[in-house]
Structure formats: C-alpha cells, structure tokens
C-alpha cells in the first residue's frame, strides 16, 4: 500500500479567518475518500491547495511523491481535478475543449484521439460533442468536467462535488464510474450527499471549521449513531403494552414511537449500541404480539454528521 496523497499540516488563512487549520491525512491506492462537512467547512479550500491552485499558508501536500509546493508541475501531471461547479470554457465545444486539455497534457495525434474517445465513452458525452459548452445542461457540463479530469488517466482524482446537478440516473452512472476507477487510483470526493458516501466511499473524513472531526469508514461512522443496532417493530396493535414490556429489557435504554413514511412503529434503542435484536425477538415471541414487520437499524450517517458538526 503506497501513499498516493499525503497531506501534511495543510493550513490556509484568509486575512484573520483560518479556513483550514493544520489538516493531515493520507490516501492510498484503491481508496475513495469522502470529504464531508457543512458549507464553508474548508473542503474546497483543502482541495484547491492539494491541486496547487491555492498556495498553503503552512504545510504541504505530496502527490505521488511530488510536492505541490516544491514541484507543482510534476504534482499537477499526476492529478485529475474537477473544480467546484465544473468550470469549462463556455464558447468551446466539448471536442475542442478536450483536445485542448489533451494537448496541454502532452498528448498528440492518435494518442490524443484515443484518450479523448475513451474519456467521452466513459462519461457518455458523444451526443453533445459539437455543441458549445454554454448551451449544455448542468448534467452534461459536469460530465465534460469529469471527462477532462479523466483524460490523462491520472493516479489521483480530486473531485469537488462530482454528482452535483445530475439527475438520479446520471448520479448512478457517475458513481458506477467512480467505483470502477477506484481500484487503480486514489480518489478524493467532496460531497454533502450522505447517501453518496454510503454508496462509493471506503473512508470518510468529516471536517468543520477547518479541522478534521472524524476519519473512519462509513460503517464505523454510522455505528456512532444512537440508532446503531436499534430495533424497529411494527405491531398491528397493543403498542402501549409492548412499549412498557420492551423498556424493561436490560439492554434497552428507551423506546420511542415513530411515525414516518414507513408507517407507525416502535423504535427500541439499545444501551451503548449493543446488539439487542436477540432479546427483543425472544420477548416478541413469548408475548405473542402480532408483528407486521421488524428490522435492525445500522445507524444513520446524517444523524452522526449533525451530531459531530452541529
């Protein structure tokens, strides 16, 4: 396992505001790191420093052995970057834009053509290749930005909100693409869509006010939820009686009544996240309640996110 991205004490100050405060982490090949945080947490600023757009006030990032401060051009060669909002020259067509990117990255002739074709196929752009980028929908613009980032088959991909503005189908395709690329690369994506982290990230970092507050796998993060291992029981009737009985179980800390899109139910919360599904099932069986449905909660990322960043 080699470290493809190594962020060391990265710091950025804007006047008196400390936007990023000594952040350190590293990403290895095969990892998809989700960068989470409220707006203004410092996600984009960190990405701008790793990609060499913004000079760090302190610290540095090393990309595939090249220091972004000491040898920015060597580092930039190894990075594919999708900036926030997927900027691209509005007057150009995707074809001329991608040709420009190919040439500036040093590809010519058949090699450039082959790489453009591959990037276009991967991002399903072929139908809009001759239209000015300014006339394209948000989804296509985003895909032009992705194609540009993938063109030189970089070892490191930094994607700032890659699925923002895509419809559910396009989102699914973009995520499938990122997952397919993942084994060969080190990928960092920023997002505030928590289902995206669940869907594609092997690791998540939560940052707020310029500091790292959590660095773990999505499953580990979800396990910090008070809902982790909670049992949801949907009874046909007799809620009051069941509630009292469930509350007496040793592993249970509380029982809540919930009414949401899935209907009314009882939510049995465990003490300290322990597994209580066994004792709950036993009780249900001995009491003989009419159960319509029962499920174990894994924990919710959005709830953990709120608890950490609020």
């Amino acid at each position: 396992m080699t470290e493809m991205i190594e962020v060391r004490g990265l710091t950025r100050r804007f006047g008196v505001i400390l936007a990023v405060d000594h952040i350190s982490f590293s990403v290895v090949r095969g990892e998809v790191l989700g960068f989470l945080g409220p707006n203004g947490a410092g996600k984009s600023t960190t990405m701008k420093m790793i990609t060499g757009f913004l000079a760090p006030t302190d610290g540095t990032a090393v990309v595939c052995g090249a220091d972004i401060v000491g040898d920015p051009i060597a580092a930039k060669r190894r990075i594919g970057y999708l900036p926030e909002g997927a900027p691209a020259y509005p007057d150009m067509t995707p074809r001329s834009f991608l040709r420009f990117i190919a040439e500036i990255r040093g590809f010519a002739g058949d090699e450039a053509k082959r790489r453009i074709d591959l990037a276009v196929t991967r991002t399903a752009l072929s139908s809009v290749m001759e239209q000015p980028i300014e006339t394209l929908s948000k989804g296509f613009k985003r895909r032009v930005g992705l194609a540009q980032a993938l063109l030189h088959d970089p070892d490191v991909l930094i994607l700032d909100e890659p699925t923002d503005g895509l419809d559910p189908n396009q989102k699914h395709e973009a995520r499938t693409l990122i997952k397919a690329l993942a084994p060969e690369k080190a990928i960092v994506i920023s997002t505030h869509l928590l289902d995206e982290v669940d869907a594609i990230c092997s690791r998540a970092i939560i940052i707020a006010a310029g500091r790292i507050l959590a660095d773990a796998t999505p499953i580990e993060l979800a396990a910090r939820s008070r809902l982790h291992n909670a049992v949801r029981i949907d009874l046909t009737d007799g809620h009051v009686e069941a509630e009292t009985a469930l509350r007496r179980l040793p592993g249970v800390v509380a029982v809540e009544r919930v009414a949401d899109a899935e209907g009314a139910a009882l939510l049995v919360l465990p003490r300290g996240g322990q597994a209580i599904v066994g004792e709950v099932t036993d009780l249900v069986r001995t009491a003989g309640w009419a159960v319509r449905g029962m499920s174990v909660e894994r924990g919710r990322l959005d709830e953990v996110f709120r608890a950490i960043t609020a």
Partner: peptide, 10 residues
C-alpha cells in the same frame, strides 16, 4: 471560474 481549471493544469 475557468482560472481554477486552467491553473491546475501542468
């Protein structure tokens, strides 16, 4: 915003 794309090219 293309300056961010432009100046992160090598």
């Amino acid at each position: 915003g293309t300056i961010e794309l432009f100046l992160t090219l090598p």
